[in-house]
Amino acid sequence: MLAGCSATTIVVDGSYPSPLVRKLPLTIGVYYPEELRNFAYTEIDDNSGKDQYIVQSGTSQLELFNTVLPALFENVVMLDSLENANSENGIDAVFVPEIAEFQLGLPQKTKLKVYEIWMKYNMKLSKANGDYIADWVMTAYGKSPQENLQSVDSGVQGAAVVAMRDLAASLTFGFTTVPEVNEWLKANNYVTE
């Protein structure tokens, strides 16, 4: 009886491959804000107005960044707080990923035969002393086809993993093409083009 009234919690659980790219010769400090670490999205039931699904993806997002960043940069230093960045030796820049939006498309609502997830991030890159380098938006999209006798949990998991991989692909190929980042990399001779 109680189970029928409470929201279903879906914990996104995925493992991600390391990108096959040449590393940039940088030591990057990485700080994960509390909102990202514990990120959870709540889908509201249109009819009752109550919580229907809670999608917890914070742990999975951290796992993704922890896999992708060491493949992109020669050294990655995890930071407990942004204040610690300046005291850590040799940090060239500090990277902070922030999740800004999360949308879930369920087949029962969209009438499409796919589960969809769309995410928007604000990525920030600054010098170790906190000076601004770049601030840019990245989006990620994932979909997973609805199958017979499939649970909502499995459909959402599938779409979330595709969306996370999409984010990793965008970050891998897009990092050096962000104009301010590219300008900074060239100015410091980390890249030539």
Binding site: P17, P19, L20, V162, R165, D166, S170
Partner: peptide, 8 residues
């Protein structure tokens, strides 16, 4: 990865 993802 990530050369054969839907976007790439």
């Amino acid at each position: 990865f990530p050369f054969f993802e839907p976007r790439t």
